[in-house]
Amino acid sequence: MPTPLLSVRDLVIEFPTRHGPLTAVDGVSFDLAAGEVLGVVGESGAGKSLTGSAIIGLLDPPGHIASGEIYLKGKRIDNLRAEDMRAIRGRHIGMVFQDPLTSLNPLYTIADQLIETIRTHLRLSEREARQRAIGLLDDVGIPAASRRIDDYPHQFSGGMRQRVVIALALAAEPELVIADEPTTALDVSVQAQIIDVLKEQCTQHGASVILITHDMGVIAETADRVAVMYSGRIAEIGPVREIIQNAKHPYTSGLMGSIPTLAQEEDRLVQIPGSMPRLSDIPPGCPFNPRCEKVFDKCRVQRPSLIPVENRQVACWLYEDTGTSEVAT
């Protein structure tokens, strides 16, 4: 098996508090192949954004990686010096945030911001960088790019601004783009276009994508694999089609049951009774046990780790026996 582009191993993210550390992400592991699109879903607070921030090295203190490792092309990146990690951001890992209205510096033109980014990472002259910037804007579908490039962010609509943000994220040809709810803040009418642009551009530039979203519909259309997160852990991860057609984890089944049909406007996921536990009182054993219909004794005592089932991995005791390897307890 070739080295995966990205490999996250037992990632634990903690926040120190007066009553001891709060564990917000607890033992997350997954691999991402070159060119692959991984969707990440889960309720609010499941730890999706924190995982993404940790990968790009932008966790806001006091949050920090308490243990675990992150590898990019086989090289460990979670313990790099600040300056070395900076060189990786933008150049190897790009990021697209939720709100395009606030992602761009209001006092700089689009050209300023693109050229600055390009020249930080690539040895290009001002003119070459500008040419490249115009090309990028063209690619993401900004009309009259060579003219609009000198405009300020406020002169663009939300959708157009998110296109600019995508161009900025791809400006230095990163191999991985992390998109954290890239359309949540946008008007529904442009959401699909933006996802299309994101996917198309990342494919064209050969970048893998981690797409964080609440929208299973988007994942179904865009992603190759999906990771379902719950209470800071991965509940189930595997190929999108298989998981949508036949969810194994009881939480995932609940999610799939609540995928909105086209007729519905509702795009929130959760219809499972109850809510995700707060970080300070995650129950022992399986974190989903208070809400699970199939809960049994073991679930309340022992925490299930990811068990390989067919092409995927499921963190649920129901699949202990079907697991291909012996599960250490």
């Binding site: 790009i56 932008l58 600040a82 900076r86 060189a87 990786i88 951001r89 933008g90 150049r91 790009g94 990021m95 945030f97 709100d99 606030t102 992602s103 761009l104 510096n105 209001p106 600055e116 980014t117 930080t120 990472h121 943000v165 900025l168 994220a169 400006a171 230095a172």
Partner: peptide
């Protein structure tokens, strides 16, 4: 604390810039 600063950092701009 603003988003555009976080995005600037995500693009790998130098601390000085």
């Amino acid at each position: 604390r603003a988003d555009y600063i976080k995005f600037a950092r995500a693009r790998g701009l130098s601390t000085r810039a």
